[in-house]
Design a protein around this nucleic acid. Sequence first.
RNA 1: GGCGGCAUCGCCAAGUGGUAAGGCAACUGAUUGCAAAUCAGUCACCCCCGGUUCGAAUCCGGGUGCCGCCUCCA
Length: 496
Amino acid sequence: MHTSDSNLPPIQLENSLTRRCEPLVPQVPGRVGMYVCGVTVYDHCHLGHAVPAVVFDAIRRYLEYRGYLVDFVVNFTDVDDKIINRAHAEGSDYLAVSERFIASYFEDMDRLGVRRASLYPRATQHIPEMHEMIRVLMDKGAAYAVEGDVYFDIARFAGYGKLSGRKVEELLAGARIAADSRLRQPADFALWKGAKPGEPGWDSPWGRGRPGWHIECSAMACRYLGQTFDIHGGGLDLVFPHHENEIAQSEAATGQPFARYWMHNGILNLGGQKMSKSIGNVLGLKLLFQKHSPDELRQYLLGTHYRSPQNFEEDGLEKAARAHCRFTNVFERVTRVLAGAGKGAGGSEGQAALAQPLRKATDQAQGRFHQCMSDDFNTGGALGALFELAAELNRSLQSAETDGLSEGLAAPVRQARATLSELLGVLGFSTAPAAAPAAARSSKLTGKLVELLVELRLDARKAKDFALADTIRKRLSELGVELKDSPTGTTYSLKV
RNA sequence: GGCGGCAUCGCCAAGUGGUAAGGCAACUGAUUGCAAAUCAGUCACCCCCGGUUCGAAUCCGGGUGCCGCCUCCA
């Protein structure tokens, strides 16, 4: 990994709390504490869940690339109404449900190439920490118990509304909040919910019950990252009430600022509405994996800025897949040309003139990549820079493909490939020249069989039996094997 | 109703004061037995109306449209 390089632009990010772009200055130099809201594990993940996962994965990777040590915490909400309901419906218990979907979550995220966070704390394993925070809030008079429930008194926290821009007076009116006469004001929220019969519960000073939704994040973030930490992330849809309430209860309890920077990813829409389980317009990841590779999904998700809303279109993933092909193609090509390097000495004259522009393009791409990523993690712009490098690399390879690669051009070509590969890696793509060629991905027998057909087809082409050659290519294509002829031979690739 | 966000080529999408990156699609040409890939070329005055400025997609005011949140939600 890189160490800090003073030549690189300082990292700036848009802070939801201040609504401004601010330089990232970690509390502890060289070290970033980051907490991102994970999922409530009551079902499989859909594409909407992949947005923050992939986005913050890329952010984390970039921070580490820049030399920061990142303490990255992602929570699981493993007890709540939906989990309990599902358990009831299945005749199992909440643990069985949450365990199953935590496993499913890891399965999907691993496949997506999301690097594991430093820690995945679960709500039910941090009941004592939550009790302690609630107790402090009670002692300070910021919380009150009613019939086994404990509520946070928003009137006792002066900063309430500072994240979401809401005014307490308006919340007091509480247009859409069902009036609960037991509450001091309608917008007070539960820290602890008394357990109803048949519900899971934990003993507490206020009676048997379970945690409110917001308290887990406060308790676990403080436990692992400290009362004040650097970055708190999550979906834009969590700003209110979830994150607002996290701030209120944490800061009321500790008297310290909670997260210093808040980052919110835009929401993925489908059919003009948020992709959401309750609306029913979701695309499950497991389903998408049948048609698309992890890199294609990542290309789609990182093609747009993380804060922008993204509207899912029918052919959106298809386009992203085609776009990503440019990278896989250029890597294949470089590998092929490098393998044949030295075989033909021709073209050195013309190729010598290509070396310098390629070096320059490599430097430029690197510079632009950093410039974009430093400026609030502009992955779309960064990808644009990488496409330009890919194009320059292709340009350089034009003559080398037929005439052989000259000695002088080989070095900058290797350098360009290394840079492209490295920077794609920073964004979390698995595309890389070293990545197993198609043949190695398939079972040995499949590879040998395809090679056999390619050989037979080559004989046919030599014999000018193009009808047979085309039939072989067409039939293989129908089976998901794409053949590509080039001056240096035929290569093939397997679809997904 | 309140609070936020967004509006750039057919589609996706960068760009935050100096006359519009990139990708997909399309068209023309090169290459190819044909494909694919690749290269070259073509393809936008930035939702509307005012204002500030020598100069605005970029700043200010006013509209319009879409989305999110205010209930569980990435």
